[in-house]
Design a protein around this nucleic acid. Sequence first.
DNA 1: TAGATTATTCTACAATCATGGAACTTTCGA
DNA 2: TCGAAAGTTCCATGATTGTAGAATAATCTA
Lengths: 112, 112
Amino acid sequence: MELSNYARIFKALSSEQRLKIFMMIYDNCCAPEESKLGSEFRFVNDACCSIKGGIEKAFTKICDCMSLSRSTISHHFKELQNAGLITCEREGQTYRCSVNEATINAIKNFLK
Amino acid sequence: MELSNYARIFKALSSEQRLKIFMMIYDNCCAPEESKLGSEFRFVNDACCSIKGGIEKAFTKICDCMSLSRSTISHHFKELQNAGLITCEREGQTYRCSVNEATINAIKNFLK
DNA sequence: TAGATTATTCTACAATCATGGAACTTTCGA
DNA sequence: TCGAAAGTTCCATGATTGTAGAATAATCTA
């Protein structure tokens, strides 16, 4: 992978709000005690995400608790997708998102 | 560590030029075949950096091969320091820099 | 079908950022 | 001691970014 790709990935995680969104998807909400976002984000609606066990489920809805407009959140989701950090599949009126583990592993390998 | 700190670290690595500078320090120039920067950056002046074996040595001089002004490079170094990614000690007219492994490990733990 | 809900896209704007030049400071070496 | 070399700081500028509002599209549900 090109160096510029890594820079793009890091850029996607460089905004605090976007990082928060990413962590909501990343964190296993079924094991909220491991959440890095603090209690305010642990039990939000019926959202549930996991990168373990192949369940991988999370809805954009989880972002309603952030004080950001819909269009802003839409942009952030797109940036996370463009960086290859998450993939989203339309599911009715909303999305089913999952973390792209390959990208996470690439970062970890990059930092050896 | 606060989420905002991680965002700051990622931001420091989000500029391609700054990431290049960081990798110059990060990469073990004594084992250049592992360099992620390509041949152009492997043998630059007398610069040598390593995060293995405690040698940890690198000079700002290695940046002269990048087409950036001195002041820009100075800014980038400061940002890498502020993010806690590198530490620099004055050594005569230049600096001796080393990667802050604690920060690297923090990122890797953050991404579990 | 009609209204409500959700997300996208377009546009705009304030804030931040990457960069370089000029002036200045510190250190080296002849 | 004086000039050269290296780095910092201040200032300016063009580019990018994070954000929201309005208009639009798609989907759900009563």
